[in-house]
Write a protein that binds this DNA or RNA. Structure first.
Lengths: 146, 146
DNA sequence: AGTTATTTAGTTGTACACAATTTAATTTTA
DNA sequence: TAAAATTAAATTGTGTACAACTAAATAACT
């Protein structure tokens, strides 16, 4: 019937689908204390670096559109983590910046990467191979969807 | 632990998160003709093999709980793809079986794996390495979440 | 047997994710 | 420069995910 490659391919997609949910589940635990979700944590990671970014820029970095970001950023604003303000140079654009409260979470978040590693112990070699594979896979996928 | 490794883990998690969405997006296109979503397609894959499974068994295979499955299966039932019926041996259990209409989609779906591979060209070697890595990663993750 | 514990689906509420559409602001171009 | 095209967010509607809870059936135990 089907070639092995095709079958394997299916398994890999399912495994990525499953891994994503398991990783999110793990982050949920680690982030519980911060009272943020994983996507919100990703926004914070960016804002801890750059302090403020437009919705568009956040979307470009996270590959999310306004349909996802707008409500999420509103929730974060409601929780006092970020501020949203129309740009004065370009009124179409909305600038999101991290508040003091949002910045304060950075300290609490310091330990998260190491806790993560504790739960997914992998060799250095394996890690970088996986990283490269995912990178090229993502390139293929994102090339296509554009 | 070196900060290099910590950062890499974080990046890998983000890439898996992103890859999952890109893969789902690709499937969305491929499955548009069948009028099913990727998770629904996964259910069909199982039912094409086994004809009927309980909600519990579906959940065990897909790592999804009734909170996700029940509404999804109801949508599939509404679309005429599956049937849901209480088991007579055990009234707690609900048996989901594929209908003729659901089975008819199998033919249309045959071409999907190869179309998928066309969009993610990867070497056999790389593919099986990725598969192994994800498998062990999943084991770690699922062990932990118990 | 009768009570307690466990199991199985379903329900409720929250939070993404994204397609499709809308609105308003800015660019482009005719 | 006025009209057309483009851009940036927001909105609307659908479909997962999952935690927490409920209800009903079955199993286990005294």
């Amino acid at each position: 019937m089907k070639s092995e490659t095709l079958k394997l391919e299916n398994q890999i997609c399912f495994k990525i689908y499953t891994a994503e949910r398991e990783i999110t589940k793990l982050y949920r635990e680690l982030l519980k204390e911060l009272n943020v979700t994983y996507p919100q944590y990703l926004v914070l990671l960016l804002l801890w670096e750059k302090h403020s970014l437009s919705v568009k820029e956040l979307g470009q970095r996270l590959f999310l559109d306004s349909g996802t970001l707008t409500p999420m950023l509103k929730r974060m604003e409601m929780n006092g983590l970020v501020e949203r303000k129309r740009s004065e140079q370009d009124e179409r654009s909305v600038i999101v910046s991290v508040t003091e409260k949002g910045n304060a979470l950075k300290e609490k978040a310091e330990c998260i990467p190491s806790q993560l590693v504790d739960n997914i112990p992998m060799g250095k070699e394996e890690l970088s191979t996986l990283n490269e594979t995912l990178t090229s896979m993502l390139e293929q996928l994102q090339n296509h969807s554009k």
